[in-house]
Design a protein around this nucleic acid. Structure first.
Length: 158
DNA sequence: GCCAACGTTGGC
DNA sequence: GCCAACGTTGGC
């Protein structure tokens, strides 16, 4: 089966690509997603070996900053059962988990970040989910062509 | 800090 | 099942 590609948003103040690079085994679980559309992608679609574009949201500037890889497919996000967690969901049941996460591993940091306004200038990305008006999804599908374009741009020296 | 866009909730 | 109110996201 062909490799698929995704974009994950993170606020660098809470977890940046540098944090991922420094993490044990350069790997982290991607917890705290509480949106059904994103949940469905995490639970059903993302597979080991899939490519991930790491994107910094609420950043100055917001930008695609590097690449990661899915190293564990969807499994229940334990924070939904933890009353002390910010992500606690009193309606989630351990035998019927509502929220899922994947594990991702650091692959590379782009030699230059790709800010939103730069991405918007690239014709190949015209239909990208990220660039659609009002798009807020924190887990997004990326087409192979979009992936190729972004990787090439990110590896090109500024 | 503002606010547009979107998702979720809950009354009916 | 509709939809108004509310909460959140995220760029600026």
């Amino acid at each position: 089966m062909a490799t698929r590609y995704w974009l994950l948003k993170s606020e660098p103040e809470s977890f940046s690509i540098d944090d991922l690079q420094r993490a044990p085994k350069q790997t982290t679980f991607w917890n705290g997603v509480r949106n059904y559309q994103a949940r469905n992608l995490l639970r059903d679609e993302m597979k080991v070996g899939d490519g991930v574009i790491f994107y910094h949201s609420n950043a100055d500037p917001a930008a695609a900053v590097g690449l990661a890889e899915v190293v564990r497919a969807g499994y229940p996000d334990g924070t939904q059962f933890d009353p002390k967690s910010d992500y606690y969901d009193p309606d989630a049941k351990p035998d019927d988990p509502r929220w899922f996460m994947v594990d991702i591993k650091f692959k590379e940091k782009f030699v230059r970040p790709l800010p939103l306004d730069l991405l918007r200038t690239l014709p190949a990305l015209a239909d990208m989910v990220l660039l659609r008006r009002g798009s807020r999804l924190s887990v997004q599908p990326v087409t192979p062509a979009e992936w190729k374009t972004i990787v090439a741009q990110g590896r090109r020296p500024a």
